[in-house]
């Protein structure tokens, strides 16, 4: 038991401390020692939570979040053969995209990774996504929330298009919408009637978790 918990603690700490070379060998060793993959996944998620807290405290920077996210992705690949469908995405589906006319994706990708590691099923539609695709994905995945990323000031109108398309499809009342990205402001969120504005990926996780609760 002590060994079992020791493995989980080491995985969590390796991710939290960004010991990037250690995580995969650790995971492989733990699996061989009989540690269950869902527990290791939870340990990595706990490590990501620490990374998020350190980011908010100003100890870590964007690149550290990305580094942790990349390690998380690689770790999930190691665990994947040992995981079943029910082990991930239990907090519900979130549709994510960069809006039509904008192809910036660093922030969006980061939010996707952070949400996945926090237990959401993330439907990432990519960049330059028209409103109708968002509607389709919300419907097809029974998503409870949508995250829209926009960096370009000139493309903020695309936010309104998504809100309107969801309203026309009769989905607006059942779906929460959050926006984020360099040009987004509370004034913009109010103007388009979205439910929340996220300053960064860590805040995004808090917003979606609040809605999932």
């Amino acid at each position: 038991m002590e060994d079992y918990l020791g493995y989980l603690d080491r995985v969590k700490r390796a991710l939290a401390d960004l010991e990037v070379d250690e995580i995969n060998p650790l995971l492989k060793g733990a699996l061989e020692a009989g540690v269950k993959a869902p527990d290791l996944l939870n340990a990595m998620s706990a490590g990501m939570e620490v990374v998020g807290r350190r980011f908010e405290a100003g100890e870590y920077f964007l690149a550290d979040l990305v580094l942790a996210g990349e390690e998380m992705k690689e770790g999930v690949e190691v665990l994947k053969p040992h995981l079943s469908a029910g082990d991930t995405g239990g907090k519900g589906a979130v549709v994510m995209c960069t809006v039509k006319g904008d192809i910036h994706d660093i922030g969006k990708n980061l939010v996707c990774i952070m949400l996945s590691s926090a237990g959401f099923k993330v439907v990432d539609l990519g960049v330059d996504v028209p409103a109708e695709k968002v509607v389709e994905a919300v419907r097809g995945n029974s998503a409870f929330a949508v995250g829209l990323s926009v960096l370009l000031t000139t493309m903020v109108g695309s936010i309104g298009e998504v809100v309107e398309a969801l309203r026309s499809a009769g989905l607006r009342d059942s779906v929460k919408i959050a926006i984020g990205g360099a040009c987004t402001t509370q004034e913009l969120a109010d103007r388009y009637g979205v439910d929340a504005l996220g300053r960064d990926a860590v805040e995004a996780v808090r917003i979606f978790s609040g809605w999932a609760a």
């Binding site: 100003g58 870590y60 920077f61 964007l62 690149a63 550290d64 922030g107 360099a182 300053r199 960064d200």
Partner: peptide, 12 residues
């Protein structure tokens, strides 16, 4: 930098 601060740590 982006809206919350530098993308890399100042040290890096």
């Amino acid at each position: 930098a982006y809206r919350s601060g530098p993308m890399l740590s100042p040290k890096l």
